[in-house]
Design a protein around this nucleic acid. Structure first.
Lengths: 203, 203
DNA sequence: GCATTTACTAAACACTGTTCATTAAATTTG
DNA sequence: CAAATTTAATGAACAGTGTTTAGTAAATGC
């Protein structure tokens, strides 16, 4: 292997170094709480060096959002092997909520953060997200096809289920459950999920 | 009226001036997109003057969050006059979603923004929010008492309904419905609300 | 009229994202 | 091998941020 490929490898290593430092810092202090200077300090390089590997702060954000989408995919896609569409759907939902609770910063990155959403459609992370959503929509369609619901409005069913799951996770991780005592919050979330499953059964 | 009361009045007018400029700017550019200097420029005072009326930027945020909660209360509380608890609940939900769609920045302020939530329990805005939530919980309780649901787990029912409504609004205003064509999004939201009402009927 | 309080601000401090000229090292060329 | 060139990294700067402080000028109290 010539020096060209070594250079490329080193460049890739540097990008990883930046990304890992950024992810760790973002998890600790949030996107706005971390500066390029903080990241540079963490990897013991000058701030200007970061700009040799990423165009700006938002590009680091996009790269991390892709990582987050990949973690989410690995967390959810195992349910693809479940034959029964209804069981597959329920397990998908359970894992979606579980992902949000276990990785609040990644969930935030994917579904709440507003930052630079302008050209997101062109980003890899978006493509990955679309693919996972498509799998979800197909699973709902499979349930409709197998007459698991009275309604046949697949799109609305899928969206309604997503709304509930997203509301569940985002109220939790954005600290809007303070009217419930800390130790009851997770239990309430579990009960609500179960209730939604029951409601969906008679949908 | 002595000059003391005039001074107080002037102080109050100044606070209003700051708040109105801040609210307008926050709506246009978001909390992070607006600087103290921007607000100062808008009201034609120096940045330091702002600090004579508000301790820091987060106090302006709290004041605005209180205004937002008041707008929300005015938008929702008229339903208190609806006698039938189920009709009251449905109308409350409709207006909750409507408030979020009509005032995305206020909704954001109340239910999504993370900013300085540390000591929020002591803030007026939180008390107001708690009161509105309590009214919602009481309405659900009234429905349970009147046997509108099979389930009697009031807390979980209320929370589940809230999750769905919040998910609906927050996915919309945080731009996570891009997989649906722009012109279909609001219709989908309406359909989903209707579906949730139907589901709740058979809860 | 003079002392005091009030209202306000210019300037500074320590940050931020980002750019650019410069340096030092690695690589290619003669 | 030495000279020329490309590459990698940075120090310093620019324009912005939230916030504090010292100082001024006007309004008020005596």
């Amino acid at each position: 292997m010539g020096i060209v490929s070594r250079k490329e490898r080193e460049k890739e290593e540097m990008r990883r170094l930046i990304l890992e430092a950024a992810l760790r810092l973002f998890r600790e202090k949030g996107y706005d709480g971390v500066s390029i200077r903080n990241i540079a300090e963490a990897i013991e390089y000058s701030p200007a060096t970061i700009y040799l590997y990423y165009k700006d702060k938002s590009e680091i954000f996009f790269a991390l959002q892709y990582e987050a989408a990949a973690v989410k995919r690995d967390h959810l896609m195992p349910v693809a092997s479940i034959e029964n569409p209804w069981e597959r759907l329920v397990e998908f939902g359970r894992r979606y909520v579980d992902f949000g609770m276990k990785h609040p910063d990644l969930y935030d990155l994917l579904f709440i953060t507003l930052t630079p959403m302008d050209s997101i459609e062109n980003q890899e992370c978006w493509q990955l997200g679309i693919a996972i959503h498509a799998f979800f929509a197909e699973t709902v369609q499979a349930c409709v096809d197998a007459r698991y619901f009275k309604s046949t409005d697949t799109e609305t069913i899928a969206y309604t289920l997503w709304c509930h799951a997203h509301g569940l996770v985002s109220l939790f991780i954005r600290e809007r459950m303070r009217m419930y005592p800390e130790e009851k919050r997770e239990e309430l979330a579990k009960k609500s999920f179960a209730m939604m499953v029951k409601m969906a059964e008679s949908l």
